[in-house]
Write a protein that binds this DNA or RNA. Structure first.
Lengths: 208, 208
DNA sequence: CGGACAATAGACCGCTTGGTTCAGTTCCGG
DNA sequence: CCGGAACTGAACCAAGCGGTCTATTGTCCG
């Protein structure tokens, strides 16, 4: 109780999670057998089942953990003093990076596949991924509007638009293996396009 | 040979496909058992296996068929005489509708889930869905630029941007069950936002 | 009307799965 | 260095899986 453990009841807990993480992200829920996981984790079946009552709960735990990890890599807006172009470019790069990374893609795939069977995973994913980005973007945009840097009527819509623009091409083409990688250059081009489009719509200079 | 059949070797062929379609779209590849499918199709196992050598091939056939169906509902650009705002609004509605429909969502989900195991399904889906939309949008935009209606430097990027803007919010929130339906009104609002943004970036009036 | 033959239903097979059990081994704090 | 908790490995189970096989039904042509 004094060290690290509280809920987790044994020394191999982390091994189990880590092994399950790798196998589930690679093979999905159905594709991963419990034996695969124990092998990957270097742990016996009995040990695994001493931590988790069944495969479903183990999966939920892993999936939620990955969603939390995803949240950690999400955008943050510290430097709100710079011009919107600058702030949005930096934020956009983070969004595009996550969308094209192996990690982001794997988590997305597995959450989409199992969102029907495990609805809470769907919610968790949204909340810690697109939802979080959306929320932080909204907060930033509100500030920028108040500061007179941007002119936006429907801020939630604008936030969704910007995020979606940064994922244009990148996400879908990686998901379906049309591109095996995205160069930083190409990604930056897409982000630049997103910022340009966003600014020409909501920048203070061009009011309609 | 005189009637309807040519390739398909029996009268229950369509029943099999239809049953498999329903079960696969509902439960995915692993989630669907062959017995489920025969039950749903009202057909015996032997009958099914007389048409398809194994479950994998049946799935591929169904998935490809659904991709073809998806292609049929994709955007088309007949009326290119109207103003870009009008043409894009109509096209955008089609894109947003498909993205938020049960059909579009199911096909997307199942293709994402199995794109790793069946790479050709990933390609087929892209080709008959986002890829087709992109291609047709590019063709239209090229025309509009030539006609002097729009000013676009990177047409493929612009096409991707527009399509993505129309799917903003709609797609993700439906995928993860944050909204069970999308009213036509709300959808139209998103499409209007997409068109406005697109026009303020690429409309001929606002050159930078 | 009858016989040949394809289509069919569903019992059946071998195998893998998630999950359990248990006798024995390792680890670690006191 | 001891005692108990954590861990192991393998054997084991029932259930469900994809796929096959055979006995029966239905159909069509002479």
């Amino acid at each position: 109780m004094t060290t690290t453990a509280k809920v987790k009841r044994g020394r191999k807990f982390d091994q189990v999670i880590e092994g399950a993480r790798r196998v589930f992200l690679r093979d999905g829920f159905d594709g991963a057998s419990v034996d695969d996981i124990t092998r990957e984790a270097g742990v016996s079946k009995a040990t695994l089942y001493s931590y988790f009552p069944d495969k479903r709960l183990l999966f939920l735990e892993v999936a939620k953990g990955e969603c939390r990890r995803q949240a950690e890599t999400a955008v943050e807006f510290d430097d709100t003093d710079s011009a919107p172009e600058t702030v949005l470019t930096i934020a956009g790069r983070r969004i595009a990076e996550l969308a094209s990374s192996d990690f982001g893609r794997s988590v997305f795939r597995v959450c989409v596949a199992e969102a029907e069977r495990f609805p809470e995973i769907g919610h968790e994913f949204y909340k810690s991924g697109p939802g979080l980005v959306r929320q932080r973007l909204i907060a930033y945009l509100e500030g920028a509007v108040a500061r007179g840097q941007l002119a936006i009527d429907d801020i939630p819509l604008a936030a969704a638009q910007f995020a979606e623009l940064c994922r244009a091409e990148v996400h879908v083409r990686r998901l379906f293996h049309l591109d095996e990688t995205f160069s930083a250059k190409r990604r930056d081009g897409i982000v630049r396009g997103a910022v340009e489009m966003f600014m020409s719509r909501y920048g203070v200079r061009n009011r309609d």
